[in-house]
Write a protein that binds this DNA or RNA. Structure first.
Lengths: 244, 244
DNA sequence: TAAATAGTGTCTGTAAGACAGTATACT
DNA sequence: AGTATACTGTCTTACAGACACTATTTA
């Protein structure tokens, strides 16, 4: 051990790079999709031209906290300012970034794209929504492939016993629409009756006006009583293989 | 936005401090306890003399990854090298450390103290095991109070549907001993029959020799089939208020 | 044989899945 | 009327909790 005498505080440690990355999910075209950005092309850039999760360095002059930094990056990329946003974890090591020992604080966000397109401003680096299976098939920059896997595992795990998919649906929410969203994320179909009981018993929905669809009986509309936190169901759906 | 032309990579950002902290739990004297260390007393030290979670700066020359850094700190403090260790989350901001914008990567560890005392080497800064309720009552250094709360919430949440407490018990494990450990962590009593069914059905225990207690019928001994990961039960115990 | 601890058998209640039925809209 | 979609009622089954019972040890 390189013993530092503990009476003289040392701040001369070499400091790692500190970044924040955000895994942003939505449901579009009946698919779970994730937002990726393309790395710039300069010769000194790491992973030039490769696709990556949106993110970047913490700006100590601008960001008061890590969460604020994540919110800023989300807003910059999507224009969305009140998403569901939770911390996913952190990754750090000597070899994940060729520029040196680096750390990233990963967040994951759920947003609803209700028709209005998510900002694709000119001058911005290229960005695109991609179905998660396509994104997984690409070799992403840094260790972003691993981070994406972790985000997916966390999402699919929590969907088994929370109301998270409600954040992927624009209000007013209908139960058929919410069920479809659950089925898309889980990759399997659910029983209608049991699903409805579950959602209504959980008490996180508030009735609003009915919503007319393309045909057939109109559906009851709902909105989230508390956008701050998802509801937690007493039991998972079934054969729930929950992750960490 | 302070736009950096994306053709010239900037590494001249001011870099935050990067630390790792570990919340180490054990069960001693029929109580859930946590390991705290005392901050050094120098005049330039932050929070001099205050109790804190064990941890410190990442050493980029020594630590290959954040996880390796956490393992090193755990080994230094306790001598234990194969605990249950999982990442808890990260905290970072401008005001959590008076020395500047800082980040910490928090881990939480579960260890079994089987009689042999956890190293309390001379020359080391003062450290002690404290019942969690006592630790919560103290004003800890930095934002370690908040981190401890998060660790406790995570532990209590996961105990409802995983075999985590098995890592708090020295092998050979007996079911009565394991049940007592669950009850200590949860703060409520559990039904014996249902508890045993749950544990045995989960299939994470392997029978070894029987273990004689202080009196009465000897108990079947068990050991963990896989020390790498806890078992996940299909359902939580009851009225489970699971956290994030 | 009494006390102490370990372990089992069986009943009951709850709630999730299955699925058939009813309701309300549009064409 | 017929079709499409939304919603409900009821049966069955799985399983966790309750709790009384049996088993095996020491004093």
């Amino acid at each position: 051990m390189s013993a530092a005498p503990n009476s003289t505080p040392r701040l001369d440690f070499e400091r790692p790079l500190v970044t924040v990355d955000v895994v942003i999910f939505t449901v579009r075209a009946e698919q779970l999709q994730v937002l990726l950005v393309q790395r710039p092309d300069g010769p000194a850039e790491p992973f030039p031209g490769r696709w990556a999760l949106p993110g970047g360095f913490v700006d100590v002059a601008q960001d008061r906290t890590l969460l604020a930094c994540a919110r800023r990056k989300l807003k910059d990329k999507t224009g969305v300012s009140t998403p569901y946003l939770e911390q996913l974890g952190s990754w750090g090591g000597a070899s994940r970034d060729p520029r040196g020992w680096s750390t990233t604080h990963a967040y994951f966000a759920l947003i609803a794209v209700s028709g209005q397109r998510v900002q694709e401003a000119a001058g911005q680096p290229a960005q695109q929504w991609l179905p998660v299976e396509d994104a997984r098939a690409r070799k992403l920059a840094f260790d972003h492939g691993e981070i994406l896997e972790a985000a997916l595992a966390r999402l699919r795990s929590k969907v088994e016993y929370t109301s998270l998919p409600a954040f992927l649906v624009p209000e007013p929410i209908t139960l058929p629409q919410l069920q479809l969203t659950y089925e898309i994320v889980l990759g399997r179909s659910l029983d209608k009756s049991a699903f409805r009981r579950r959602m209504l018993d959980a008490g996180f929905l508030e009735e609003v006006d009915t919503v007319v669809g393309p045909g057939g009986r109109p559906a009851q509309g709902f909105r989230l009583i508390d956008r701050g936190a998802p509801a937690v169901f007493p039991r998972p759906f079934k054969s729930g293989e929950q992750g960490a």
